[in-house]
Lab assay of single mutants.
Amino acid sequence: IMNCCEQCGEYLPSKGAGNNVLVIDGQQKRFCCQSCVSEYKQVG
Rank of each mutant, 00 (worst) to 15 (best):
Y11H: 15
S35C: 09
Q27M: 09
C36T: 09
I1L: 05
C4V: 11
S14A: 14
E10I: 01
V21W: 12
M2C: 04
L22D: 12
N19I: 08
I24A: 12
E39Y: 13
G18T: 03
V21M: 09
C4E: 13
Y40V: 09
C33A: 12
G26E: 10
F31N: 03
Q34P: 11
E10Y: 07
G26S: 10
K15D: 15
A17R: 01
V21S: 07
D25Y: 00
S35Y: 10
N3I: 05
N3F: 11
N20Q: 11
V43G: 13
G9R: 02
N20S: 10
N3W: 02
Q27H: 09
Q42M: 08
Q34N: 11
V43D: 08
F31H: 04
C5V: 00
C5Y: 00
F31V: 03
L12G: 03
Y40M: 07
C8Q: 01
N19H: 07
G16V: 04
L12R: 01
N20C: 12
G16E: 14
S38K: 11
N19W: 06
E10P: 03
D25C: 05
G26A: 10
C33N: 07
Q7D: 02
S38Q: 12
V37K: 09
C32H: 07
F31Y: 08
R30G: 13
N19S: 12
S14F: 01
I1N: 14
K15T: 14
E6G: 07
G18Q: 00
A17Q: 10
V37M: 15
V37C: 12
Q28G: 05
G26W: 03
C8Y: 04
E10H: 06
G26K: 05
C8T: 03
D25K: 07
C8P: 00
M2W: 01
V23F: 15
E6P: 05
V23R: 12
Y40R: 11
S14R: 02
G16K: 00
Q7R: 12
Q28V: 07
C5R: 01
G44L: 05
Y40E: 13
C32L: 02
G9H: 00
L22V: 12
E6H: 05
N19Q: 09
E6V: 05
C32M: 01
G16M: 12
L22N: 07
E39C: 15
C36Y: 02
G16C: 09
C33D: 13
V21P: 02
C4R: 12
K29V: 10
C8W: 00
C32K: 02
E6T: 06
Q42F: 00
L22R: 08
A17M: 08
V37W: 09
G9A: 07
I1D: 15
K29I: 05
L22Y: 14
C8M: 00
N20G: 08
V43R: 11
V43A: 12
K15V: 12
G16D: 13
E10G: 04
E39R: 13
M2S: 13
V23N: 08
I24D: 11
Q34A: 13
G18A: 12
S38M: 11
L12S: 01
C5F: 00
Y11Q: 15
K15A: 14
E10C: 00
Y40W: 12
V21N: 03
C5H: 01
E6Q: 08
C5A: 01
I24F: 13
Y11R: 15
C36V: 02
G9S: 02
Y11L: 13
V43M: 06
L22Q: 11
C4N: 15
F31R: 03
K15S: 14
C4D: 12
L12V: 10
E39G: 14
I24Y: 09
V43W: 04
G26V: 05
E39M: 14
G26P: 04
E6K: 05
N19T: 09
M2K: 14
A17D: 12
S35K: 14
P13E: 07
K41F: 04
G16L: 06
C32F: 01
G16H: 05
Y40I: 05
Y40A: 13
C36A: 06
N20D: 05
V21I: 00
C32Y: 01
Y40T: 14
Y11E: 15
Q28L: 03
G9F: 12
Q28W: 02
C36P: 07
G9E: 02
N3L: 05
I24L: 12
A17T: 04
V21L: 07
Q27F: 07
Q34W: 06
Q27S: 07
G16P: 07
C33K: 08
N19R: 05
G26M: 03
F31M: 04
V37D: 06
S38Y: 00
V23D: 12
K29Y: 11
Y40K: 11
C36G: 04
Q7T: 08
K29C: 00
Q27V: 08
I1M: 14
Q28S: 07
F31L: 05
N3R: 01
A17I: 02
M2N: 12
C36M: 01
C4K: 14
V37R: 09
S14L: 09
G18E: 15
C8H: 05
Q7G: 08
G44Q: 02
P13L: 02
Q34L: 06
C4G: 09
Y11I: 08
S38V: 09
R30Y: 03
G26L: 04
I1A: 11
G26T: 04
V21A: 10
G44W: 06
P13K: 01
V43H: 03
K29Q: 04
E39W: 02
G16Q: 13
F31S: 05
G18V: 05
Y11W: 05
C4S: 15
V43F: 03
M2D: 11
G26R: 05
N20R: 04
D25G: 10
Y11P: 14
C8G: 03
Q28I: 11
E39D: 00
Q28E: 13
K29A: 05
G9L: 04
V21R: 05
I1T: 07
N20M: 11
N19F: 11
C33S: 13
C8L: 00
Q28Y: 04
R30V: 15
Q27G: 11
C4T: 12
Q42P: 07
I24P: 08
S14T: 09
Q34T: 11
E10R: 09
L12Y: 02
S35V: 09
Q42L: 09
C32E: 03
Q28P: 10
Q7Y: 06
K15G: 14
G44C: 07
G44V: 08
G18D: 15
C5P: 00
Y40Q: 13
N19D: 00
Q42G: 13
C4H: 13
S14C: 10
C33Y: 03
V37Q: 11
N3M: 06
Q42A: 14
D25F: 07
Q34M: 13
C8R: 01
P13C: 14
C8A: 01
N20P: 13
Q42V: 14
N3Y: 00
N3A: 09
S14P: 15
V23Q: 15
G16A: 10
S38R: 10
V21E: 14
Q27A: 11
Q42N: 15
G9T: 12
K15F: 06
K41I: 01
G26F: 08
K15Q: 13
E39T: 14
F31W: 01
R30F: 09
Q7H: 10
I24N: 07
M2L: 09
C33E: 12
I24W: 11
Q34E: 14
Y11F: 08
E6S: 07
K29H: 13
Q42R: 13
K15Y: 13
M2H: 05
G18F: 00
S35L: 08
C5E: 03
D25M: 03
N19K: 04
S35W: 08
K41W: 03
K15R: 03
K41C: 05
S38N: 04
N20L: 09
R30K: 15
G9M: 06
P13H: 06
I1V: 12
N3E: 11
K29F: 07
I1P: 06
Q27L: 11
L12A: 05
I24K: 10
Q28A: 08
V37P: 08
A17S: 12
N19E: 15
E10T: 00
N19V: 08
C33V: 04
F31D: 07
Y11A: 15
N19A: 13
C8I: 00
L22T: 10
A17V: 06
V21K: 15
K29N: 02
M2T: 10
A17L: 06
E39V: 13
A17P: 04
P13W: 01
C33H: 09
K15L: 09
C33R: 08
Q28H: 14
G26C: 10
Q28K: 04
V43S: 07
D25A: 08
V43Q: 11
G44M: 13
V43C: 07
E10A: 02
I24C: 08
G9Q: 10
R30S: 14
Q28N: 04
